[in-house]
Amino acid sequence: MECKGFLFDLDGTLVDSLPVVERAWTHWAERHGISPQQVLDFIHGKQAITSLR
């Protein structure tokens, strides 16, 4: 296969990554004894590092 370039979808424009993002944050919240819904309500629209801080 020969390619002239690659297309990376890092913002969810081409592929909806929301289900896997929410699943990962839900697991994180459960491991840390935090309400998953509170975490999901907080994380949207922020970089992960901002949410973790």
Rank of each mutant, 00 (worst) to 15 (best):
E2T: 14
E2Y: 12
C3P: 11
K4D: 15
K4E: 13
K4C: 07
K4W: 12
F6E: 14
L7T: 14
L7W: 10
L7F: 12
L7H: 13
F8K: 06
L10I: 13
L10V: 10
L14K: 04
V15T: 09
V15E: 03
S17A: 08
S17W: 01
V20W: 12
V21T: 11
E22K: 07
R23T: 08
A24G: 13
A24S: 15
A24R: 14
A24E: 14
T26G: 02
T26A: 04
T26S: 08
T26N: 03
T26R: 01
H27D: 09
H27C: 03
W28K: 03
R31A: 13
R31W: 09
H32C: 03
H32S: 00
G33V: 01
I34P: 03
I34K: 10
S35F: 00
S35Y: 00
P36V: 00
Q37T: 12
Q37V: 13
Q38C: 09
Q38D: 13
Q38I: 07
V39G: 00
V39L: 01
V39S: 01
L40V: 03
D41G: 12
D41Q: 14
D41E: 14
F42Y: 08
I43K: 05
I43Y: 01
H44M: 09
H44P: 01
G45F: 07
G45I: 08
G45H: 09
Q47G: 05
A48V: 12
A48Q: 06
I49W: 08
T50R: 08
L52I: 09
L52H: 07
R53W: 15
R53E: 15
R53G: 15
